[in-house]
Design a protein around this nucleic acid. Sequence first.
DNA 1: AAGTCCTAGGTAATAACTTAA
DNA 2: ATTAAGTTATTACCTAGGACT
Lengths: 216, 216
Amino acid sequence: MKNSMIHQLDDQMVLISQYYPDIYTQLVSEPGEAKQQRRRKKSKGEGSRSGVMRKRKLSEEQVNLLEQSFGNEHKLETERKDKLASELGLDPHQVAVWFQNRRARFKNKKLEQEYSKLKTQYDIAIVEKCRLENEVIKMKEQLSEAENEIQKLLLERNCDGVSSNSPISTSSFTMDQPPFLGEFGMEGMLMDNLFFIAENTYNYQEGLEWVNPVYI
Amino acid sequence: MKNSMIHQLDDQMVLISQYYPDIYTQLVSEPGEAKQQRRRKKSKGEGSRSGVMRKRKLSEEQVNLLEQSFGNEHKLETERKDKLASELGLDPHQVAVWFQNRRARFKNKKLEQEYSKLKTQYDIAIVEKCRLENEVIKMKEQLSEAENEIQKLLLERNCDGVSSNSPISTSSFTMDQPPFLGEFGMEGMLMDNLFFIAENTYNYQEGLEWVNPVYI
DNA sequence: AAGTCCTAGGTAATAACTTAA
DNA sequence: ATTAAGTTATTACCTAGGACT
Protein backbone atom coordinates (compact mmCIF):
# COMPACT_ATOMS: atom_id res chain seq x y z
CA MET A 1 0.00 0.00 0.00
CA LYS A 2 1.03 3.46 0.61
CA ASN A 3 3.39 4.72 -1.96
CA SER A 4 4.74 1.62 -3.43
CA MET A 5 4.52 2.72 -6.96
CA ILE A 6 6.94 5.51 -7.18
CA HIS A 7 9.86 3.37 -6.92
CA GLN A 8 11.93 3.72 -9.93
CA LEU A 9 13.42 7.11 -10.07
CA ASP A 10 16.40 6.78 -8.00
CA ASP A 11 17.21 3.28 -7.43
CA GLN A 12 20.77 3.56 -8.06
CA MET A 13 23.42 4.79 -5.87
CA VAL A 14 26.44 3.26 -4.81
CA LEU A 15 27.61 1.90 -1.84
CA ILE A 16 29.78 -0.22 -0.18
CA SER A 17 28.26 -3.40 0.22
CA GLN A 18 29.41 -4.09 3.53
CA TYR A 19 30.30 -1.31 5.69
CA TYR A 20 30.31 -3.62 8.58
CA PRO A 21 33.41 -5.44 9.59
CA ASP A 22 33.72 -9.14 9.81
CA ILE A 23 34.01 -9.07 13.47
CA TYR A 24 30.68 -10.63 13.80
CA THR A 25 30.74 -12.93 10.87
CA GLN A 26 31.82 -16.32 11.89
CA LEU A 27 31.95 -19.53 9.99
CA VAL A 28 29.00 -21.61 9.24
CA SER A 29 30.01 -25.15 9.67
CA GLU A 30 29.41 -25.39 13.27
CA PRO A 31 29.52 -28.41 15.43
CA GLY A 32 28.72 -31.64 14.04
CA GLU A 33 31.01 -34.50 13.68
CA ALA A 34 31.92 -33.67 10.20
CA LYS A 35 28.54 -34.10 8.87
CA GLN A 36 29.48 -35.52 5.59
CA GLN A 37 30.35 -32.11 4.36
CA ARG A 38 29.86 -33.47 0.94
CA ARG A 39 29.86 -31.55 -2.20
CA ARG A 40 31.50 -28.34 -2.60
CA LYS A 41 32.18 -29.25 -6.11
CA LYS A 42 29.85 -26.87 -7.73
CA SER A 43 32.61 -26.31 -10.17
CA LYS A 44 30.10 -26.29 -12.90
CA GLY A 45 29.13 -22.78 -12.25
CA GLU A 46 31.86 -20.54 -13.30
CA GLY A 47 31.32 -18.52 -10.20
CA SER A 48 31.21 -21.31 -7.72
CA ARG A 49 31.39 -19.35 -4.59
CA SER A 50 34.90 -19.58 -3.48
CA GLY A 51 34.84 -22.11 -0.72
CA VAL A 52 35.07 -19.95 2.29
CA MET A 53 31.96 -18.63 3.81
CA ARG A 54 31.14 -16.93 6.98
CA LYS A 55 28.64 -18.12 9.42
CA ARG A 56 25.26 -16.67 8.92
CA LYS A 57 23.36 -18.42 11.61
CA LEU A 58 23.39 -17.20 15.12
CA SER A 59 23.91 -19.68 17.88
CA GLU A 60 20.95 -21.16 19.63
CA GLU A 61 21.83 -19.27 22.72
CA GLN A 62 21.99 -15.98 20.90
CA VAL A 63 18.66 -16.62 19.29
CA ASN A 64 17.13 -17.54 22.60
CA LEU A 65 18.10 -14.29 24.15
CA LEU A 66 16.97 -12.33 21.14
CA GLU A 67 13.64 -14.09 21.16
CA GLN A 68 13.16 -13.39 24.80
CA SER A 69 13.92 -9.76 24.26
CA PHE A 70 11.59 -9.65 21.31
CA GLY A 71 8.89 -11.20 23.42
CA ASN A 72 9.08 -8.32 25.83
CA GLU A 73 9.05 -5.65 23.23
CA HIS A 74 9.09 -5.72 19.47
CA LYS A 75 10.67 -2.35 19.11
CA LEU A 76 14.30 -1.80 19.85
CA GLU A 77 15.62 1.36 21.37
CA THR A 78 19.25 2.20 21.03
CA GLU A 79 20.03 1.39 24.57
CA ARG A 80 18.50 -2.02 24.52
CA LYS A 81 20.14 -2.72 21.22
CA ASP A 82 23.60 -1.95 22.46
CA LYS A 83 23.04 -3.87 25.62
CA LEU A 84 21.89 -6.90 23.73
CA ALA A 85 24.72 -6.61 21.26
CA SER A 86 27.36 -6.64 23.92
CA GLU A 87 25.68 -9.44 25.80
CA LEU A 88 25.60 -11.52 22.68
CA GLY A 89 28.87 -10.53 21.22
CA LEU A 90 27.22 -9.22 18.12
CA ASP A 91 27.41 -6.01 16.24
CA PRO A 92 24.59 -3.68 17.24
CA HIS A 93 23.69 -3.42 13.60
CA GLN A 94 23.25 -7.16 13.47
CA VAL A 95 20.90 -6.97 16.38
CA ALA A 96 18.92 -4.28 14.63
CA VAL A 97 18.69 -6.38 11.50
CA TRP A 98 17.62 -9.37 13.49
CA PHE A 99 14.78 -7.40 15.02
CA GLN A 100 13.68 -6.06 11.70
CA ASN A 101 13.55 -9.50 10.24
CA ARG A 102 11.87 -10.85 13.31
CA ARG A 103 9.14 -8.27 12.99
CA ALA A 104 8.62 -9.25 9.39
CA ARG A 105 8.37 -12.89 10.35
CA PHE A 106 6.00 -12.00 13.11
CA LYS A 107 3.78 -10.18 10.70
CA ASN A 108 3.57 -13.17 8.42
CA LYS A 109 2.89 -15.60 11.22
CA LYS A 110 0.25 -13.30 12.54
CA LEU A 111 -1.42 -13.16 9.19
CA GLU A 112 -1.46 -16.92 9.00
CA GLN A 113 -2.95 -17.18 12.44
CA GLU A 114 -5.51 -14.55 11.71
CA TYR A 115 -6.45 -16.36 8.59
CA SER A 116 -7.18 -19.65 10.23
CA LYS A 117 -8.94 -17.93 13.07
CA LEU A 118 -11.16 -16.09 10.65
CA LYS A 119 -11.69 -19.26 8.70
CA THR A 120 -12.97 -21.01 11.78
CA GLN A 121 -15.35 -18.22 12.57
CA TYR A 122 -16.49 -18.11 9.01
CA ASP A 123 -17.28 -21.79 9.03
CA ILE A 124 -19.21 -21.40 12.25
CA ALA A 125 -21.14 -18.50 10.80
CA ILE A 126 -22.01 -20.49 7.72
CA VAL A 127 -23.33 -23.39 9.71
CA GLU A 128 -25.31 -21.02 11.85
CA LYS A 129 -26.67 -19.35 8.77
CA CYS A 130 -27.84 -22.67 7.39
CA ARG A 131 -29.48 -23.51 10.65
CA LEU A 132 -31.33 -20.22 10.59
CA GLU A 133 -32.36 -20.70 7.00
CA ASN A 134 -33.80 -24.06 7.89
CA GLU A 135 -35.55 -22.59 10.85
CA VAL A 136 -37.07 -19.89 8.71
CA ILE A 137 -38.31 -22.42 6.22
CA LYS A 138 -39.86 -24.52 8.92
CA MET A 139 -41.51 -21.55 10.49
CA LYS A 140 -42.93 -20.46 7.21
CA GLU A 141 -44.53 -23.81 6.88
CA GLN A 142 -45.94 -23.53 10.33
CA LEU A 143 -47.23 -20.07 9.65
CA SER A 144 -48.84 -21.30 6.52
CA GLU A 145 -50.51 -24.10 8.41
CA ALA A 146 -51.67 -21.76 11.11
CA GLU A 147 -53.06 -19.46 8.52
CA ASN A 148 -55.01 -22.25 6.97
CA GLU A 149 -56.36 -23.27 10.32
CA ILE A 150 -57.46 -19.76 10.99
CA GLN A 151 -59.12 -19.44 7.64
CA LYS A 152 -60.91 -22.66 8.26
CA LEU A 153 -62.09 -21.62 11.68
CA LEU A 154 -63.22 -18.27 10.42
CA LEU A 155 -65.14 -19.84 7.64
CA GLU A 156 -66.69 -22.28 10.04
CA ARG A 157 -67.71 -19.50 12.34
CA ASN A 158 -68.99 -17.22 9.62
CA CYS A 159 -71.11 -20.01 8.23
CA ASP A 160 -72.79 -20.50 11.59
CA GLY A 161 -73.70 -16.94 12.33
CA VAL A 162 -73.55 -14.70 9.26
CA SER A 163 -72.23 -11.81 11.32
CA SER A 164 -69.01 -10.52 9.78
CA ASN A 165 -67.52 -8.35 12.49
CA SER A 166 -64.75 -10.46 13.89
CA PRO A 167 -62.57 -8.63 16.40
CA ILE A 168 -59.15 -9.76 15.25
CA SER A 169 -59.59 -11.30 11.85
CA THR A 170 -57.36 -10.24 8.98
CA SER A 171 -54.73 -9.08 11.36
CA SER A 172 -51.37 -8.27 9.91
CA PHE A 173 -49.77 -11.64 10.01
CA THR A 174 -52.40 -13.26 7.95
CA MET A 175 -51.39 -11.53 4.77
CA ASP A 176 -48.07 -9.85 4.85
CA GLN A 177 -46.29 -13.15 4.58
CA PRO A 178 -47.54 -14.93 1.50
CA PRO A 179 -47.28 -18.64 1.92
CA PHE A 180 -44.27 -19.44 -0.25
CA LEU A 181 -41.72 -21.91 0.90
CA GLY A 182 -38.17 -20.76 1.02
CA GLU A 183 -36.79 -17.92 -0.96
CA PHE A 184 -34.54 -20.03 -3.09
CA GLY A 185 -36.93 -21.45 -5.58
CA MET A 186 -37.56 -25.12 -5.28
CA GLU A 187 -34.50 -27.22 -4.98
CA GLY A 188 -35.81 -30.01 -2.90
CA MET A 189 -34.56 -28.50 0.28
CA LEU A 190 -37.22 -29.40 2.71
CA MET A 191 -35.44 -32.11 4.57
CA ASP A 192 -36.82 -31.72 7.95
CA ASN A 193 -34.21 -31.18 10.54
CA LEU A 194 -31.17 -31.84 8.45
CA PHE A 195 -28.78 -29.17 7.52
CA PHE A 196 -29.24 -27.53 4.25
CA ILE A 197 -25.77 -26.87 3.05
CA ALA A 198 -25.39 -24.25 0.42
CA GLU A 199 -22.32 -25.38 -1.43
CA ASN A 200 -21.83 -22.10 -3.15
CA THR A 201 -20.87 -20.36 0.00
CA TYR A 202 -17.53 -22.07 0.13
CA ASN A 203 -15.90 -21.08 -3.07
CA TYR A 204 -13.17 -18.79 -1.94
CA GLN A 205 -10.54 -20.79 -3.72
CA GLU A 206 -10.51 -20.47 -7.42
CA GLY A 207 -8.04 -18.98 -9.79
CA LEU A 208 -5.37 -16.99 -8.14
CA GLU A 209 -3.70 -15.10 -10.83
CA TRP A 210 -4.65 -11.86 -9.20
CA VAL A 211 -1.59 -12.13 -7.09
CA ASN A 212 0.70 -10.67 -9.65
CA PRO A 213 2.22 -7.65 -8.02
CA VAL A 214 2.73 -4.32 -9.57
CA TYR A 215 6.09 -4.33 -11.20
CA ILE A 216 5.18 -1.72 -13.78
CA MET B 1 18.03 -29.85 17.56
CA LYS B 2 20.59 -32.19 16.25
CA ASN B 3 23.74 -32.02 18.19
CA SER B 4 23.85 -28.49 19.28
CA MET B 5 26.19 -28.58 22.14
CA ILE B 6 29.57 -28.35 20.66
CA HIS B 7 29.22 -24.86 19.60
CA GLN B 8 32.33 -22.96 19.92
CA LEU B 9 35.04 -24.73 18.15
CA ASP B 10 35.39 -22.86 15.05
CA ASP B 11 34.32 -19.37 15.38
CA GLN B 12 37.07 -17.88 13.54
CA MET B 13 37.92 -18.49 10.12
CA VAL B 14 37.91 -16.16 7.59
CA LEU B 15 35.49 -14.83 5.82
CA ILE B 16 35.43 -13.29 2.77
CA SER B 17 32.44 -11.63 2.52
CA GLN B 18 31.89 -12.15 -1.02
CA TYR B 19 31.97 -15.66 -2.10
CA TYR B 20 30.45 -14.82 -5.38
CA PRO B 21 32.73 -13.64 -8.05
CA ASP B 22 31.98 -10.39 -9.53
CA ILE B 23 31.31 -11.88 -12.83
CA TYR B 24 27.61 -11.51 -12.53
CA THR B 25 27.67 -9.12 -9.75
CA GLN B 26 27.87 -5.73 -11.15
CA LEU B 27 28.14 -2.50 -9.41
CA VAL B 28 25.15 -0.93 -8.00
CA SER B 29 25.40 2.48 -9.41
CA GLU B 30 23.67 1.97 -12.65
CA PRO B 31 22.13 4.71 -14.67
CA GLY B 32 20.91 7.34 -12.43
CA GLU B 33 21.64 10.97 -12.68
CA ALA B 34 23.65 11.17 -9.52
CA LYS B 35 20.98 12.03 -7.09
CA GLN B 36 22.68 14.02 -4.45
CA GLN B 37 24.57 11.08 -3.13
CA ARG B 38 25.17 12.85 0.09
CA ARG B 39 26.53 11.20 3.13
CA ARG B 40 28.58 8.15 3.06
CA LYS B 41 30.77 8.94 5.91
CA LYS B 42 29.82 6.20 8.20
CA SER B 43 33.46 5.97 9.00
CA LYS B 44 32.43 4.69 12.33
CA GLY B 45 32.61 1.18 11.04
CA GLU B 46 36.27 0.59 10.90
CA GLY B 47 36.20 -2.28 8.48
CA SER B 48 34.53 -0.73 5.53
CA ARG B 49 35.45 -3.61 3.37
CA SER B 50 37.68 -3.35 0.49
CA GLY B 51 35.67 -0.98 -1.57
CA VAL B 52 34.41 -3.45 -4.05
CA MET B 53 30.81 -4.20 -3.98
CA ARG B 54 28.65 -6.14 -6.18
CA LYS B 55 25.28 -5.16 -7.21
CA ARG B 56 22.48 -6.82 -5.45
CA LYS B 57 19.55 -5.45 -7.27
CA LEU B 58 18.71 -6.72 -10.65
CA SER B 59 18.03 -4.17 -13.31
CA GLU B 60 14.48 -3.28 -14.08
CA GLU B 61 14.78 -4.96 -17.39
CA GLN B 62 16.03 -8.18 -15.89
CA VAL B 63 13.24 -8.16 -13.38
CA ASN B 64 10.71 -7.55 -16.09
CA LEU B 65 11.79 -10.54 -18.03
CA LEU B 66 11.92 -12.70 -14.94
CA GLU B 67 8.45 -11.57 -13.95
CA GLN B 68 7.12 -12.34 -17.35
CA SER B 69 8.62 -15.76 -17.25
CA PHE B 70 7.25 -16.31 -13.79
CA GLY B 71 3.85 -15.28 -14.99
CA ASN B 72 3.88 -18.04 -17.54
CA GLU B 73 5.04 -20.69 -15.18
CA HIS B 74 6.11 -20.67 -11.59
CA LYS B 75 8.26 -23.68 -11.93
CA LEU B 76 11.62 -23.48 -13.57
CA GLU B 77 13.05 -26.37 -15.49
CA THR B 78 16.73 -26.50 -16.10
CA GLU B 79 16.37 -25.66 -19.70
CA ARG B 80 14.32 -22.57 -19.11
CA LYS B 81 16.65 -21.54 -16.35
CA ASP B 82 19.71 -21.66 -18.54
CA LYS B 83 17.95 -19.89 -21.34
CA LEU B 84 16.85 -17.12 -19.06
CA ALA B 85 20.24 -16.86 -17.47
CA SER B 86 21.98 -16.32 -20.75
CA GLU B 87 19.35 -13.89 -21.93
CA LEU B 88 19.77 -11.85 -18.80
CA GLY B 89 23.46 -12.22 -18.36
CA LEU B 90 23.01 -13.83 -15.00
CA ASP B 91 24.27 -16.93 -13.35
CA PRO B 92 21.76 -19.76 -13.70
CA HIS B 93 22.00 -20.18 -9.98
CA GLN B 94 20.93 -16.61 -9.57
CA VAL B 95 17.92 -17.24 -11.72
CA ALA B 96 17.05 -20.24 -9.63
CA VAL B 97 17.32 -18.22 -6.47
CA TRP B 98 15.18 -15.51 -7.95
CA PHE B 99 12.46 -17.99 -8.70
CA GLN B 100 12.59 -19.48 -5.26
CA ASN B 101 12.24 -16.10 -3.67
CA ARG B 102 9.54 -15.12 -6.10
CA ARG B 103 7.51 -18.16 -5.22
CA ALA B 104 7.81 -17.35 -1.54
CA ARG B 105 6.70 -13.79 -2.15
CA PHE B 106 3.84 -15.08 -4.23
CA LYS B 107 2.71 -17.28 -1.42
CA ASN B 108 2.58 -14.40 0.99
CA LYS B 109 0.74 -12.16 -1.39
CA LYS B 110 -1.70 -14.93 -2.02
CA LEU B 111 -2.32 -15.36 1.65
CA GLU B 112 -2.99 -11.67 2.02
CA GLN B 113 -5.44 -11.75 -0.84
CA GLU B 114 -7.14 -14.83 0.49
CA TYR B 115 -7.48 -13.18 3.82
CA SER B 116 -9.27 -10.14 2.58
CA LYS B 117 -11.42 -12.24 0.33
CA LEU B 118 -12.44 -14.41 3.23
CA LYS B 119 -12.98 -11.36 5.34
CA THR B 120 -15.42 -9.98 2.83
CA GLN B 121 -17.33 -13.20 2.69
CA TYR B 122 -17.34 -13.44 6.43
CA ASP B 123 -18.81 -9.98 6.77
CA ILE B 124 -21.48 -10.81 4.26
CA ALA B 125 -22.30 -14.00 6.11
CA ILE B 126 -22.58 -12.13 9.39
CA VAL B 127 -24.97 -9.58 7.97
CA GLU B 128 -27.01 -12.35 6.46
CA LYS B 129 -27.04 -14.16 9.75
CA CYS B 130 -28.36 -11.10 11.51
CA ARG B 131 -31.03 -10.69 8.90
CA LEU B 132 -32.10 -14.27 9.43
CA GLU B 133 -32.08 -13.91 13.16
CA ASN B 134 -34.37 -10.93 12.86
CA GLU B 135 -36.58 -12.81 10.50
CA VAL B 136 -36.83 -15.70 12.90
CA ILE B 137 -37.76 -13.39 15.72
CA LYS B 138 -40.43 -11.73 13.70
CA MET B 139 -41.87 -14.99 12.57
CA LYS B 140 -41.98 -16.25 16.09
CA GLU B 141 -44.06 -13.28 17.01
CA GLN B 142 -46.34 -13.91 14.12
CA LEU B 143 -46.67 -17.54 15.05
CA SER B 144 -47.50 -16.57 18.56
CA GLU B 145 -50.16 -14.20 17.36
CA ALA B 146 -51.58 -16.82 15.07
CA GLU B 147 -51.66 -19.28 17.88
CA ASN B 148 -53.54 -16.88 20.05
CA GLU B 149 -55.98 -16.26 17.29
CA ILE B 150 -56.52 -19.94 16.89
CA GLN B 151 -57.03 -20.47 20.57
CA LYS B 152 -59.52 -17.71 20.63
CA LEU B 153 -61.42 -19.04 17.68
CA LEU B 154 -61.39 -22.51 19.13
CA LEU B 155 -62.68 -21.28 22.41
CA GLU B 156 -65.33 -19.27 20.67
CA ARG B 157 -66.45 -22.29 18.70
CA ASN B 158 -66.39 -24.67 21.64
CA CYS B 159 -68.47 -22.29 23.67
CA ASP B 160 -71.14 -22.24 20.98
CA GLY B 161 -71.55 -25.93 20.46
CA VAL B 162 -70.04 -28.04 23.22
CA SER B 163 -68.94 -30.68 20.70
CA SER B 164 -65.24 -31.29 21.12
CA ASN B 165 -64.26 -33.19 18.03
CA SER B 166 -62.56 -30.64 15.86
CA PRO B 167 -60.93 -32.05 12.80
CA ILE B 168 -57.63 -30.22 12.89
CA SER B 169 -57.30 -28.70 16.30
CA THR B 170 -54.19 -29.25 18.36
CA SER B 171 -52.18 -29.93 15.28
CA SER B 172 -48.44 -29.98 15.65
CA PHE B 173 -47.69 -26.33 15.27
CA THR B 174 -49.86 -25.25 18.09
CA MET B 175 -47.63 -26.76 20.69
CA ASP B 176 -44.20 -27.69 19.53
CA GLN B 177 -43.14 -24.07 19.45
CA PRO B 178 -43.72 -22.54 22.84
CA PRO B 179 -44.35 -18.83 22.54
CA PHE B 180 -41.04 -17.43 23.67
CA LEU B 181 -39.47 -14.52 21.90
CA GLY B 182 -35.99 -14.98 20.65
CA GLU B 183 -33.57 -17.44 22.00
CA PHE B 184 -31.21 -14.83 23.36
CA GLY B 185 -32.87 -13.84 26.54
CA MET B 186 -34.30 -10.37 26.62
CA GLU B 187 -31.97 -7.71 25.47
CA GLY B 188 -34.40 -5.31 23.97
CA MET B 189 -33.89 -6.60 20.52
CA LEU B 190 -37.29 -6.33 19.02
CA MET B 191 -36.72 -3.38 16.81
CA ASP B 192 -38.93 -4.16 13.97
CA ASN B 193 -37.12 -4.20 10.70
CA LEU B 194 -33.80 -2.88 11.85
CA PHE B 195 -30.77 -5.02 11.96
CA PHE B 196 -29.95 -6.63 15.15
CA ILE B 197 -26.20 -6.53 15.29
CA ALA B 198 -24.57 -8.96 17.63
CA GLU B 199 -21.38 -7.22 18.54
CA ASN B 200 -19.81 -10.30 19.92
CA THR B 201 -19.51 -11.85 16.55
CA TYR B 202 -16.75 -9.52 15.52
CA ASN B 203 -14.11 -10.07 18.10
CA TYR B 204 -11.45 -11.85 16.12
CA GLN B 205 -8.85 -9.31 17.10
CA GLU B 206 -7.69 -9.41 20.60
CA GLY B 207 -4.38 -10.25 22.08
CA LEU B 208 -2.00 -11.69 19.62
CA GLU B 209 0.71 -13.15 21.64
CA TRP B 210 -0.08 -16.52 20.23
CA VAL B 211 2.21 -15.68 17.42
CA ASN B 212 5.31 -16.50 19.30
CA PRO B 213 6.91 -19.30 17.38
CA VAL B 214 8.55 -22.29 18.86
CA TYR B 215 12.16 -21.50 19.31
CA ILE B 216 12.37 -23.76 22.30
C1' DA C 1 11.79 31.34 13.68
C1' DA C 2 12.49 28.94 9.40
C1' DG C 3 14.89 26.03 6.33
C1' DT C 4 18.33 22.60 5.68
C1' DC C 5 21.28 18.90 6.99
C1' DC C 6 22.20 14.77 9.46
C1' DT C 7 21.43 10.78 11.85
C1' DA C 8 18.89 6.82 13.82
C1' DG C 9 15.51 3.78 13.67
C1' DG C 10 11.49 1.77 11.03
C1' DT C 11 9.32 -0.63 6.95
C1' DA C 12 9.16 -3.10 2.59
C1' DA C 13 11.26 -5.60 -0.80
C1' DT C 14 14.71 -8.49 -2.34
C1' DA C 15 19.10 -11.30 -2.75
C1' DA C 16 21.58 -14.99 -1.15
C1' DC C 17 22.29 -18.73 1.96
C1' DT C 18 21.14 -23.03 4.86
C1' DT C 19 18.63 -27.03 5.72
C1' DA C 20 15.83 -30.76 5.02
C1' DA C 21 12.86 -33.39 2.24
C1' DA D 1 19.59 -31.46 -8.70
C1' DT D 2 15.09 -29.14 -7.22
C1' DT D 3 11.91 -27.17 -3.89
C1' DA D 4 9.94 -25.13 0.31
C1' DA D 5 10.87 -22.82 4.48
C1' DG D 6 13.54 -20.26 7.27
C1' DT D 7 17.59 -16.88 8.11
C1' DT D 8 20.70 -13.17 7.46
C1' DA D 9 21.89 -9.15 5.04
C1' DT D 10 21.36 -5.27 1.84
C1' DT D 11 19.05 -1.58 -0.55
C1' DA D 12 15.81 2.02 -1.00
C1' DC D 13 12.61 5.07 1.37
C1' DC D 14 10.45 7.54 5.01
C1' DT D 15 10.18 10.13 9.37
C1' DA D 16 11.34 12.48 13.67
C1' DG D 17 14.40 15.21 16.24
C1' DG D 18 18.58 17.65 17.04
C1' DA D 19 22.11 20.63 14.92
C1' DC D 20 23.64 24.07 11.79
C1' DT D 21 23.07 28.13 8.95
